[in-house]
Amino acid sequence: MEKLRRTMLYVPGNNPAMIKDIYIYQPDSIMFDLEDSISLAEKDSARFLVSEALTNVDYLGIETVVRVNGLDTEFGLADLECIVKAQPDVIRLPKTETSEDISEMEAIIARIELENNIPVGKTKMFAAIESAKGVLNAYSIATSSKRLVGIALGAEDYVTNLRTNRSPEGIELLFARGQILNAARAANISAIDTIYSDIENEEGFRREVEHIKQLGFDGKSIINPRQIDIVHEIYAPKPKEIEYALQVIAAIQQAEKENSGVISLNGKMIDKPIVERAERVLQLAGINDMEQSDGR
């Protein structure tokens, strides 16, 4: 089953106090940032710090993502040379505009994997789309590489590019969100929404999360651990949905046992979309991994 990515938590790559135990907040993914949150003078130290953290800190199986600088900057290549060796789960490319951006970076990652005895293809990729051009190329980006596990909207740069700004209702993002979401779904990868930067506005954040969940997004990039619980709460299925999902799964198992081709529940036929939805509900409810949950 596809990995849950309800929350991708940013952590500035040069902050040891945050990096050392960011896992305690239990986001679905941790994203170490080497890009916008790091000043030009500290690019090197953030790179070394994230690399050492990935090698030495136990992130308890939480997906580790590193946002590197673009290859069009003087830092991008050095970031990859240092970080790929440290084996994060995912490299996130910022400001992706074309599928060539992905293939260019993929070639370098493959070369570094080869040089360091890392199975080629082990390092996954994630692309952030932050411009009108990127949004229009969303599908070709989404299908550009087998390594690509998801695409994300970066709205701050995007709205500037559109010559507008962000509104509480997010009407200016409707097209980009729809485009990115559809591209991701067509490519069968994750779709992650942009950040919400006003930490103190819990109500506004809630509204936006409900909005993007309804659109179909898998989750959101977040900038403060305080936002995690809210997202997970909104994404949590209702007890009724869980109950129904369990019934669906039970019906399938029963049908398999009886070698019956037609599966029905309460007189209604169960088809593939219903099963998929049920599986997703149970995944969001954490039913599958309940046993192994150790509460950290």
Binding site: K20, L49, E52, N56
Partner: peptide, 8 residues
């Protein structure tokens, strides 16, 4: 922690 000392 050690990882920070090492990185710095």
């Amino acid at each position: 922690l050690d990882f920070t000392i090492s990185a710095r």
